[in-house]
Simulated scan of single mutants.
Amino acid sequence: MTQVEAYLKYLRHERNYSRHTEISYYTDLCQFENFVTGILGGFDTEQIDSDIVRRWVVELMERKVSPRSISRKLSGVKSFYGYLLEHHLVSHNPARGIKAPKASKPLPSFVNYAEMKPLLEEHTLAVDGQGQFEAARDHALVELLYLTGMRRDELIKLRDADVDFSASQLLVNGKRSKQRLIPFSEKAALMLKTYLEVRNKEVSL
């Protein structure tokens, strides 16, 4: 029984890994074994060093393998060597300390004005027609989120004192207590003043 076969048996019987996970590990380790064999002429786990593992990662990148897949494959090799070390079959883990390439973050999607217009007009009509507090509040929320790009949590934390009408800007408290200034338009200023006026009337009743 090869070391890879013994490792897969260990995953199946002692770690209770699913058949699907076992196949994924087997596939990744076979790819690693083929790469190493092409360099060393065989698969001697004790002779593999960190340089070979790095070359394997580079080759995967050159083949346009996704960063997420590379991370999974590298994790599999690290786990395999962890098993070998635990059973005193090797003296080192050549994959230790080697990092996979970072996965690129997808660009955020956005809503265009044509898609937002019906929603904005709906709240505008509600405010103009009824002057209700809820309508004015919802209009303010939707307009600010769309026009400034604020995060929801930042908007929730916004206070009256954070709104500077003279400078047309908002003082926003973001993550880790970081503050930043966000400018707002005349349209946003009018919407905010309408909301504050309706709210103050509601509170005074």
Score class of each variant (00 low, 15 high):
residue 60 L to W: 13
residue 115 E to R: 05
residue 12 R to D: 03
residue 154 E to R: 11
residue 96 R to L: 14
residue 183 P to V: 07
residue 90 V to H: 04
residue 7 Y to V: 00
residue 29 L to C: 12
residue 107 L to A: 15
residue 136 A to W: 10
residue 19 R to W: 01
residue 64 K to Q: 14
residue 192 L to T: 02
residue 61 M to A: 06
residue 91 S to A: 09
residue 55 R to V: 05
residue 148 T to M: 08
residue 37 T to G: 07
residue 168 S to T: 08
residue 190 L to A: 06
residue 132 Q to N: 04
residue 3 Q to T: 09
residue 181 L to C: 07
residue 15 R to H: 02
residue 45 T to K: 14
residue 72 R to M: 08
residue 93 N to I: 01
residue 109 S to H: 06
residue 83 Y to R: 02
residue 188 A to S: 10
residue 135 A to K: 05
residue 16 N to C: 11
residue 95 A to T: 13
residue 52 I to L: 15
residue 173 N to L: 14
residue 102 K to I: 13
residue 30 C to F: 01
residue 126 A to D: 04
residue 3 Q to H: 14
residue 33 E to R: 15
residue 202 E to L: 04
residue 105 K to Y: 01
residue 143 E to N: 07
residue 26 Y to L: 14
residue 118 P to Y: 12
residue 78 K to M: 14
residue 176 R to N: 13
residue 182 I to M: 02
residue 35 F to W: 13
residue 42 G to Y: 04
residue 113 Y to F: 12
residue 80 F to V: 05
residue 138 D to M: 03
residue 124 T to S: 10
residue 119 L to D: 06
residue 165 F to V: 12
residue 54 R to C: 03
residue 48 I to C: 05
residue 142 V to A: 03
residue 139 H to C: 08
residue 47 Q to N: 10
residue 55 R to T: 08
residue 103 A to G: 09
residue 88 H to E: 13
residue 91 S to L: 04
residue 29 L to A: 12
residue 195 Y to T: 08
residue 56 W to H: 03
residue 155 L to A: 11
residue 90 V to C: 03
residue 98 I to H: 08
residue 183 P to S: 04
residue 107 L to E: 02
residue 67 P to G: 00
residue 126 A to N: 07
residue 26 Y to N: 08
residue 66 S to R: 15
residue 96 R to Q: 11
residue 109 S to M: 12
residue 32 F to R: 06
residue 76 G to Q: 04
residue 57 V to N: 01
residue 173 N to K: 13
residue 193 K to M: 14
residue 107 L to Q: 13
residue 4 V to S: 05
residue 160 D to A: 11
residue 37 T to A: 11
residue 64 K to I: 11
residue 118 P to Q: 13
residue 57 V to D: 03
residue 154 E to W: 04
residue 127 V to Q: 06
residue 105 K to V: 06
residue 97 G to T: 07
residue 80 F to D: 04
residue 147 L to Q: 09
residue 85 L to S: 03
residue 64 K to D: 15
residue 17 Y to S: 02
residue 20 H to W: 07
residue 23 I to S: 11
residue 117 K to V: 15
residue 64 K to N: 15
residue 54 R to A: 00
residue 81 Y to D: 05
residue 75 S to V: 11
residue 49 D to P: 08
residue 101 P to L: 10
residue 14 E to I: 00
residue 11 L to T: 09
residue 118 P to G: 09
residue 62 E to P: 15
residue 163 V to T: 07
residue 46 E to L: 13
residue 184 F to P: 02
residue 35 F to I: 10
residue 85 L to M: 15
residue 76 G to K: 05
residue 64 K to C: 08
residue 127 V to M: 10
residue 102 K to L: 08
residue 125 L to G: 01
residue 142 V to S: 00
residue 13 H to T: 09
residue 38 G to F: 14
residue 177 S to R: 13
residue 151 R to Y: 03
residue 84 L to G: 12
residue 137 R to F: 10
residue 184 F to L: 03
residue 119 L to M: 15
residue 171 L to M: 15
residue 127 V to S: 03
residue 79 S to T: 11
residue 109 S to V: 05
residue 36 V to L: 13
residue 167 A to C: 09
residue 72 R to W: 10
residue 180 R to G: 00
residue 137 R to K: 13
residue 86 E to H: 02
residue 169 Q to C: 12
residue 55 R to M: 14
residue 39 I to C: 00
residue 92 H to L: 11
residue 70 I to K: 02
residue 4 V to F: 10
residue 170 L to P: 07
residue 108 P to S: 08
residue 9 K to I: 03
residue 56 W to N: 02
residue 189 A to D: 04
residue 109 S to Y: 07
residue 13 H to D: 11
